[in-house]
Write a protein that binds this DNA or RNA. Sequence first.
RNA 1: GGGGUUGUAGCGCAAUUGGUUAGAGCAUCGCCCUGUCACGGCGAAGGCUGCGGGUUCGAGUCCCGUCAAUCCCGCCA
Length: 605
Amino acid sequence: MSYSSKYRTHHCNELGSEHIGQNVRLSGWVNSSRNLGGLVFIDLRDREGITQLFIDPETSPQLAAKAREIREEWVLAVAGTVRPRPQEMVNSSRKTGAIELELSELEILNRAKAMPYHLEDPSSSEDLRLKYRYLDMRRSGLLENLKLRHKISKVIREVLDENGFIEVETPILSKSTPEGARDYLVPSRVHQGSFYALPQAPQQYKQLLMVGGVEKYFQFARCFRDEDLRADRQPEFTQVDLEMSFVEPEQVMDIVEQLLCAVVKNIKQINVPCPFPRLSWKEAMHKYGSDKPDLRFALELQDISGIFKHSQFKAFSAALEQGGLIKALKAEGQAQKCSRKVLDQFTETARLYGAKGLVWLKVEADMSLSGSAAKFISPEEQRELLEQLQARGGDLILIVADAWKTACESLGRVRLQLAEFAGLINQNEINFLWVQEFPLLDWDEESQRFVAVHHPFTSPLDEDLQLLQSKPAEVRAKAYDVVLNGVELGGGSIRIHRPELQAQMFKSLGISDQEAKLLFGHILEAFSYGAPPHGGLAIGLDRLVMLLAGAKSIREVIAFPKTTKASCLMSNSPSAVSPAQLEELGLSLETEEGLSDQILDTKSH
RNA sequence: GGGGUUGUAGCGCAAUUGGUUAGAGCAUCGCCCUGUCACGGCGAAGGCUGCGGGUUCGAGUCCCGUCAAUCCCGCCA
């Protein structure tokens, strides 16, 4: 790579002993400067690395005088001769540590104010780093994460290109639809009172591309959802979105496996086993209490309802009477390590996810049980319990008795917490799996109707079709999620391509023909002109990069992320707009705060 | 919408049961320094303790509210 320009002939991580004697030019930022009164050392930094500059006041008094005023993060262009450092002054921790550049020219390209915080201090607060994101990039690991993201994107593009996928962009100004997340709305000036919505996903467009005969589509799609945020959720995020025609789940899963294997191979030099293991949703819930189980460790949940059919323990009998069940988790050899305090934390977790409580039992050396509810468990039940769980002295048993979903999910969360506490998780492992056969519909108490678990275009499993009218809750979908280390990385489905079935689906969702026409008319019409069978999937790129970067939050892999209240600390968005702008859009604000904000706003048109 | 944590100098922190004038380090500014690499030495300046109430003779410290950041629940097809 040639860097030659008036600013530089090399970058700052390039020069070594082989360049000694050469005249070179470098540009970059002052990482630090050390003025010893006589000798002056400056560490010059660019994207690639750091080179030490050297000025001897005896040979270059003017340069030394100029260098005296130089401060951190000033921008310099320099020229000089590469020379070896004295033997004992070699800095072996730096690639360019064997040499230094003795300056003959020094140009100050730009000065810099004192930094608002110490750029290399990892403990500096995140809001400052967000406010000065452009400074954060200079020295924290952020730039490395952006490079990693670029590399991952490149591999994904290559694999999809090699497999005949065509990258197509779809509109950002899109149409609001019910179902799913809250939309970000964009008011229309030309059509006052009407709004675009920013896409939650390019779902409908990509299906229309299939109707259009594209057959294999992909896109790095920016998606927008106006919901409350988390460490792994931003209001706008990127999906690797893909869709294929004339396929069944197998073909979609196959290409995604190829894609993810290539990424991991390229980034981590690890060959992950392919194809990925597959679990049905029901199995995942039963065994691991999660629809995105972390399989880096075993710890399977067990159904122990059978043992307690005639239990005298009210917590157990009540759950069973109400049609629930009793699930247990056995932690080998953890009885000693788990103090009362730790067990209380587990209990709190179980409660947080809806369980009424958590029963813990310690298996003593003599195989007797001790713990919160041991006295309510008969000797016969104790014997059966130990036998079913194959428990040994020193084991810890955690039990939740509740409705099926609550019991599974709450104990599933305890399972994760326990694994972390007991150090069962190998942080270097990359563990992919598929979860399939999700339910198609879910009863929503709030709206008193069925809602689509995935989205309303998801096809039911062929063998469950006949249940759609009679037992909608039991219909499984041709949907699949790819899970990495307990994180939902992506999901997709085979879509409904026949208008009759789509109409039936809308009916199940309580969407009238009229509504369907109004909201989805264009896609229904498109399907009436010969839609091919099709399906696809979307991968959360931010989450993928986060996991491979070992980052704790997707903010660390996004150049300019927003806070948990969806504001940008750097640009101060969102912000008020001028009355003139509102007027053009035919909008007026209701709140007084809104009005006063407008008056404060200085933007003029 | 709900719960937890945090908020003291530009930055990261300290300040005893509520008790004099809120401290030292880094950064900044000034002076000194010829082999540093987080250079070092001497000195100076720097504060509405997030904001608003309250309790008290007295509040950085206790109470209530509020704002912001963050983590989680709900929510996120």
